[in-house]
Simulated scan of single mutants.
Amino acid sequence: DSFVSTTNQASNEKVALAQQISQNFNATMDGFMSSWESRNRSQDIMSQKQSDATLGYERIYDTETGEIYKATNGFTDVYDGKRYKAVTDDNMYAEPISGYIEKQ
Rank of each mutant, 00 (worst) to 15 (best):
M33W: 05
E13K: 15
Y100V: 12
A16E: 13
E58G: 04
M33L: 15
E58T: 12
S35L: 14
N8G: 03
E37A: 13
A94Y: 01
S35R: 14
R39W: 05
Y100R: 15
Q43E: 15
A53Q: 11
D52G: 10
A71S: 07
T72L: 03
S47C: 10
E95D: 00
M92C: 09
S22W: 00
Q20I: 06
M33N: 14
Y69T: 04
K14F: 03
K82H: 09
S38A: 11
I101F: 02
S47T: 13
D80Q: 13
D62S: 08
A86Q: 10
Q19H: 04
S11C: 10
Q19L: 07
Q9A: 15
M29C: 07
E37W: 07
G31H: 03
N26A: 14
L17T: 12
Y84K: 03
I97C: 06
S35E: 08
A16L: 12
E67P: 03
T88D: 05
D80W: 00
G99E: 00
M33E: 15
N12L: 12
A94M: 00
F25G: 02
R41E: 03
Y69V: 03
Q50K: 12
S38K: 11
S22F: 02
D62L: 10
E102G: 07
F75W: 03
Q20P: 01
I45T: 01
I97L: 04
A53I: 09
S98E: 07
Y100L: 15
T6H: 09
M29H: 07
A94S: 11
F75N: 00
A71Y: 00
E37N: 14
V4K: 12
D1P: 09
S34M: 14
T7Q: 11
E67T: 07
L55T: 05
N12P: 01
R59K: 10
G99H: 00
K14A: 15
Y100K: 14
N26G: 04
V87P: 02
F32H: 03
V87T: 00
V15C: 06
D77L: 15
E95G: 04
D77G: 08
T7I: 12
A18K: 02
A86P: 00
G56Q: 05
L55Y: 03
N91A: 13
S11E: 07
S22D: 04
Q19P: 02
S2D: 13
F75Y: 15
Y100T: 05
M33R: 12
I45R: 01
Q19F: 03
W36Y: 11
A53S: 14
T72Y: 04
E102A: 10
D89F: 03
S47M: 14
Q23I: 14
G99M: 04
Y61E: 01
T65W: 04
S2Q: 10
Y93H: 08
Y93D: 07
A10W: 00
N24S: 06
S34D: 05
A27I: 06
S38T: 10
I68C: 13
S2W: 09
N40E: 06
D44Q: 11
E58A: 06
S35G: 09
S5D: 15
K103R: 14
K85C: 02
A71N: 04
A27N: 12
S47R: 12
D44F: 07
R39A: 13
Q19V: 07
V78P: 02
P96Q: 03
T88V: 14
Y79T: 02
T63K: 12
T7F: 10
F75C: 04
F25P: 01
Q104H: 06
R83M: 00
A16I: 05
K14Q: 14
